[in-house]
Amino acid sequence: MKDYLSGYAVELNSVSQDNMMLLFEWRNQPEIRSQMVNTEKLELAQHQNWFAKLAARTEQKHYVIYYKQHAIGSINVRSTDGQAIKQTREAEVGLYIGEEKYRNNIVAFAPSLLINDYLFENLNIQQLRSKVRSQNKAALKYNQQLGYQLKPIDEDFTEIILTADNYKQTTQQIKAWLSRG
């Protein structure tokens, strides 16, 4: 998968030695950590170990999101079956906005639009599927606005599923707004 993507007013740069510490800081913010499937605080050694192995991994890809050259968050893609992203037909996308100023902002849709376009139009991805904490109403609403269908799993988690058709139908307006320049 590409190391750099741009569009909808943002740029995605593959996680590198230069920006990997941002992920560590953002990921450990209580308001972000509390919404993760794994809510435990990451130790620096764990993070460094994860980063050291990242370059060789083909089943997941992690980016730092830049808006006007300012790093604002992170987005990642993982295949759900362990195959390389290039080969798999189903993946999950994870996103968090580390900079609070941009958390409740329409620009938070931009990295998802960029990644989803790439996955649906350039790779073999047929659908995206993830698990979101049911109490995270903002995330559920956000994902619905991208076209995801919600399926409650239990009281803690809701499964969210996005097909290419639902994505295209739902995001026309927001794509237009974020593409005007």
Binding site: Y8, A9, Y67, N105, I106, W177, L178, S179, R180, G181
Partner: peptide, 9 residues
């Protein structure tokens, strides 16, 4: 009017 992307953001 038609707002620019940066203004929408």
């Amino acid at each position: 009017i038609m707002l620019d992307t940066d203004d929408i953001i």
